[in-house]
């Protein structure tokens, strides 16, 4: 192995017949009482979401920082996913079942079906070569959704960030404090979405369940 020269190590895809375990390990998903029939909060576990961390400088940043290189993050991403890189802070872009969330000046998350993420990782790796980092963290994150008439109030219970529509319009993405953990929070078309580290999933799940309880809570799992 040591005599082969490779620059980056990429893990092979996982056989889909192998059983996965949910990120929410301690909370019993099926056993949550719905307090009244008019559940005005729906908590969704996007079980099959995969996640890639994409790091690098946009072309504009590269020029500003006086770096030179052939690679181009924007065109690389377009070639693999037909998605434009969201360069403006706190934005995201979307195409079909993939979305790319801006997280920092040189950091993005690529969210899409877990089964396809591996393929995208290979493609990006081939496209982007040296000056970029691609890390597959599928399974290391939990992707949740919160919808319904009272979803907004549940988020305001948990998070000091200003989520009024003027400040947090549809499509905006922020990394913020949420209860006593951190999430990446997005105002999606149909409600709110979160990305959170896997190890905090139980805590976050329990918190959301507790905070939603008074409004009537419905829990669902989406592929």
């Amino acid at each position: 192995m040591s005599n082969k020269s490779i620059k980056y190590s990429v893990m092979p895809p996982i056989d889909i017949s192998v059983a996965r375990t949910s990120s929410v390990s301690m909370c019993n998903l099926d056993n949550i009482p719905v307090l009244n029939n008019k559940a005005s909060v729906e908590l969704i576990n996007f079980e099959d979401s995969g996640c890639l961390i994409l790091r690098g400088e946009s072309t504009a940043d590269k020029i500003r920082n006086g770096r030179h290189g052939e690679d181009n993050l924007e065109s690389g991403l377009r070639a693999c996913l037909s998605i434009d890189l969201p360069i403006d802070p706190l934005t995201c872009s979307q195409r079909d079942d993939f979305s790319v969330w801006w997280v920092g000046p040189n950091e993005w998350r690529v969210i899409g079906p877990a089964a396809k993420c591996k393929d995208i990782e290979f493609k990006l790796r081939r496209q982007l070569r040296d000056e970029f980092a691609v890390v597959n963290v599928t399974g290391g994150f939990i992707h949740l959704g919160l919808r319904g008439a009272n979803a907004e109030i549940v988020i305001r219970k948990s998070c000091p960030y200003n989520i009024n529509t003027e400040n947090f319009p549809i499509g905006k993405v922020v990394s913020t404090r949420f209860a006593k953990t951190q999430v990446i929070l997005k105002n999606a078309q149909e409600g709110f979405e979160f990305l959170c580290r896997r190890s905090y999933a139980d805590y976050l799940w329990a918190w959301l369940r507790d905070a939603s309880n008074e409004f009537g809570l419905k829990i669902s799992t989406r592929k």
Partner: peptide, 18 residues
């Protein structure tokens, strides 16, 4: 507020906790 009992402090679990 809500930050008491199980929610007082986040508990991190490994994937093998069960």
């Amino acid at each position: 507020g809500r930050g008491c009992d199980d929610l007082f402090e986040p508990i991190r679990y490994t994937a093998l906790h069960s």
